[in-house]
Write a protein that binds this DNA or RNA. Structure first.
Lengths: 238, 238
DNA sequence: ATATAACACGAACATACGTTCTGGTCAAGG
DNA sequence: CCTTGACCAGAACGTATGTTCGTGTTATAT
């Protein structure tokens, strides 16, 4: 049974013609001829395509310039659909970086890593967008960032609070002065600290200047989980 | 004397043809015919237009599909020039918000406001870009946000450290539970606190849960300077 | 059933349009 | 002067392309 439109609305063929028009124009830089519409929309005759184009024009969806080859354009959806594609381009080239939100970070558990080392798009909680200009321009680091939401008040000595979002990069080593997430496997605790290797000893310095450092004499108890790149606190009014 | 091209580069006519192509396409949604190019570029014959189109194709500036009416498109400048325009649109409509960085916020001085109330683009330190999805979706607030860099350790009880960036909205009043920047004019001090009006008394609650609130019995000593929307900490490795 | 409207087919027509060819002008260089 | 290369005119050709028309099919309503 054929699909027909009742009185208003667009039939199957209207949609096909419209879609052909959009994709063809986008791909080639100019609109299709009526015969090309026929081919791609599986219409058997130019008069059929012309029939639907007339109706689409009547509805104000497209505009036609009569007696002009390829004299068609979509009125509004053209800009909408096109913008979507451009958006990606701008995202890629320019400013935005989409970072997957992988879970929560709590004091009592190690950092939940990206499941596979370089496919960070499985079982994620969502994602956040960050302007690249806010991040250090180290290209190497781009792409292997992930975000965690802080749970609980236990990171207070790192000036990080419940609900904050930390953006980090997976790492197993750190240089002095970098802020890291470490798992202290003797204390069974995750914490965020500035890292300093001092001879054989490791000094973990809280970000909060009112608090003193922790000294760890056995480096094997310190497992570096990642480097903290950025902390974002969204202050929502309750 | 006629302008001719030396060996490389584009002559006057090349440019005219190119410009006609771009403006016509943008205006009509499809490229011009060769004869239309003739008219608008003041060329006397189709063969002349064709002559220049061939050269533009040779140089890789445009692409042509042979034996196809209006089978032309501009290669790079089209996307470049067009992309620039789209970028603004995307910025406006979609994801990025550019927030002016107006100065520093220190404990000993009031908040440095946008110079004029609604032209926040004078004498600024710079600007930062933030993805709108990170901000509350209150459209009303968009556009009157500004950012300040925190100077010194004096905001520690707000879990905000030296070098952090606070994004705020100018305000003179607050509702309970909102984080505000207040100027305590008796103590001569700026501080960031959660605001609670409790009868006649004002309670200023630090974000740091280990610290107790401040109670202020004379509300006139509390001047609300703005609401804190977001705090960003960029952890740079020294 | 009959009428009506939506939809489909195929062919014919006029012309819009890309292509090509012949010939021309004009400046620069040997 | 002659050649050469860049640029210009105009016309002719073939076909790509929008338009139109007559006819046929199928659902829905009366």
């Amino acid at each position: 049974m054929m699909a027909r439109r009742k009185k208003d609305g667009l039939s199957d063929n209207h949609l096909k013609v419209l879609q052909v028009l959009e994709t063809y124009t986008e791909k080639n830089g100019y609109p299709p001829t009526i015969r090309e519409i026929c081919d791609r929309a599986n219409l058997s005759s130019t008069s059929v395509a012309n029939y639907y184009l007339e109706q689409l024009e009547e509805k104000g969806i497209i505009q036609r310039d009569r007696h002009v080859s390829r004299g068609l354009r979509v009125v509004k959806d053209y800009i909408k659909g096109f913008g979507e594609q451009i958006k990606e381009t701008v995202e890629m080239l320019d400013e935005l970086l989409t970072i997957p939100l992988l879970g929560r970070i709590v004091a009592s558990e190690p950092v939940p890593f990206p499941s596979s080392d370089f496919s960070p798009f499985a079982d994620e909680f969502g994602s956040i967008n960050v302007a690249k200009s806010l991040l250090p321009a180290q290209d190497a680091r781009r792409g292997n960032l992930f975000a965690l939401e802080v749970s609980g008040d236990s990171m207070i000595d790192a000036m990080v609070n419940d609900g904050d979002i930390v953006i980090m990069q997976k790492a197993t080593e750190a240089r002095n002065g970098e802020m890291v997430a470490v798992w202290l496997n003797d204390k069974h605790e995750t914490t965020l600290k500035y890292f300093y290797q001092e001879g054989k000893r490791v000094r973990l310095q809280p970000a909060n200047p009112t608090m003193g450092p922790i000294y760890i004499n056995d480096p094997s108890t310190v497992e570096i989980q990642g480097k903290v790149v950025m902390v974002v606190r969204q202050v929502e009014m309750q």
